[in-house]
Design a protein around this nucleic acid. Structure first.
Lengths: 193, 193
DNA sequence: CTAATATCTAAACATTCGTTTAGATATTTT
DNA sequence: AAAATATCTAAACGAATGTTTAGATATTAG
């Protein structure tokens, strides 16, 4: 009887690397449009390998979203450690704009794109990931707004909702409109606060 | 030789009526998710009839977008005949919110949804329809902004772009967020102007 | 009534989709 | 070196897609 299973061949690819490539493709084309055939070519590995590593197209997509969030966390941590109040939030908006400029071939924001594409009957875990993302960002907004003087709790809540919707709008609009138009959009968002 | 072709059986359905039903289904589910099978059931006619009337799924979708724009024109004509300047534009935003409340089962805005779903390689005529729609609305915004005193042309152009992006954001956000949150969003948009 | 013709139903079409399987290949442990 | 086993390639799977076709049905004109 074997307690330790004999190991054989090891994987010829890094899972992290191929997820990054898959994420990029989903980002560019959306979930439905991206086929397993396209993923094979982009990831540089066979269907068998994809399924043995990620189980299903849905599983791969879920990992892609996690990967995207990790990529975005470079920006969100700035907001996390910020003590600049509203100014810090504004910087976050501009950081997102810069982020989407750096990834210009991938239109918009993967989270927003996915939220726009998928219906209510989509995979629950994916819907939860999207929901989670929004809640997390909103909390950061609330914290930063709390640093401002003269804002009671209901105002903070109201502004945070407003900012979330604005961010969502920015994410969608960044698929279509030019960057200089979007910076005007951001400026106007913050004229209010 | 016949100059007048002998007429036989006439269509058992109104094309206008079935387009409306198709539009509603596309609106709810998006282009890709909506299959011909679903369309058959929703429209109450056979695939053959759909193809003989509209040529293809794309053709049917194009007619659906036109139908949607006609449905929306009830709102846009209000903006057209308005002499209220910025206030008229604000009323248009609220009218859209009311419109999307009346059609709550159809999430968001069909034009925005489609713009978010389709890539650059989509049917050119559909992309043109979407582009046309944005240009038309922007012109109306420019006209209404022109009624306000103290706005030079560059400011008008800047504000019109801002409003278009805001409208686009509102259209996307209306898929996800509650109506009371969206009215706050609208109020904040217009605090600037 | 009869011939002509357009619309109807329903089945079949070729493709593509996501997923699975069979067999060859490579690597590790004994 | 040899047995064991995981990964690889490549083909096949059933189901679903948009589209087309064949034949029955209904309506019009002469």
């Amino acid at each position: 009887m074997y307690l330790f299973i004999k190991m054989a061949r090891s994987k010829n690819y890094s899972e992290e690397e191929v997820i990054e490539k898959a994420m990029s493709l989903f980002w560019r084309n959306g979930y439905e449009t991206t086929s397993m055939q396209m993923l094979e070519k982009e990831m540089g590995i066979n269907k068998f390998s994809i399924y043995s590593s990620f189980g299903s197209k849905n599983g791969l997509f879920l990992e892609s979203i996690k990967c995207y969030k990790k990529k975005l966390s470079v920006i969100t941590t700035v907001l996390q450690s910020s003590n600049n109040g509203i100014q810090g939030i504004k910087e976050y908006f501009y950081a997102f704009l810069e982020f989407s400029k750096e990834n210009e071939s991938c239109k918009g924001c993967l989270v927003t794109n996915t939220s726009n594409e998928l219906g209510k009957d989509a995979d629950p875990e994916i819907l939860m990931q999207l929901q989670h993302f929004i809640v997390e960002i909103k909390e950061l907004f609330v914290n930063n707004l709390g640093q401002e003087a003269g804002l009671d709790r209901s105002k903070i809540e109201e502004y945070a909702d407003y900012l979330i919707i604005s961010l969502y709008g920015l994410g969608s609009a960044s698929r279509v409109f030019r960057k200089d138009q979007l910076s005007v959009f951001i400026e106007n968002i913050f004229k209010i606060l």
